[in-house]
Amino acid sequence: MQSIQKNIKNSDLLLEVNNLNVFFDTADGKIQAVKDVNLFINKGECLGIVGESGSGKTQTFFSITGLLSSNGYCNGSAIFKDFDLISASEDKKREYLGKSIGFIFQDPMTSLTPHMKIGEQLSEIATFHDNLSKSEALKRALNVLDIVKLPKSRNLINSYPHELSGGMKQRIMIAISLMCSPELIIADEPTTALDVTTQSEILNIFNDLQKGMGISIVLISHNIGVIAETSDRVMVMKGGKVVEKGSTFDVLTSPKDEYTKHLLSCIPPWLEG
């Protein structure tokens, strides 16, 4: 089914991952964290990845973006617009990472450099990828702050990360990934460390990015509610394998796989009403 869909909308295809395996060398021997994962992401679509800890959901995307720790390695292919991210050299990969592909981590507290002002952190990436001057980069930074619904103020540009709340930091992280007009944003548990009210604000921003700006989003989360509210398609992972994939509506309302059924049964019942 996947290949048929692919052929019809070939021009829409943004990222296609085939037969991805990820291994780690540990003191206890070789461990396979991701087993033969295939997936694709179309332009302007939001793909949700659901799984519990150790399901390989994070490592799948770490390997694609070259963020694996030093004892990890992978094989397979990850074609991003005719360019294989996995076989590419570090230098070549860097042209895409941060520019066409943005990455947002779980913990906004540690994702920002503590000693640099927000403005510098925002403009750094644009001066690096797009060769903008500092003032041009700052101008772009102010525009980007508007997209993530932060005030376009000099005050914010001149503040340090520790002066901001968790929710504001996560918005800054999103803003950084937006600096070079990316086509794909990979968000790894972007709201797990945040309060519920902040979480819903951040999810709204993701919705705007996807629907309004046509950016494709990969949303990795253990929270099925988060996935249900934002993603078009969903992929359920367990033990490094994909156990079920399909449209979010189909998977969550009529799951086929036993594990998906089990996961859904663990949600406290009241929310379904």
């Binding site: 519920v196 099925i224 249900a228 509210e229 449209s247 979010t248 969550l252």
Partner: peptide
Amino acid sequence: ISSVPSPIPLAK
């Protein structure tokens, strides 16, 4: 209460 994301997806 309204901020809790619902696990029931809207039909798309």
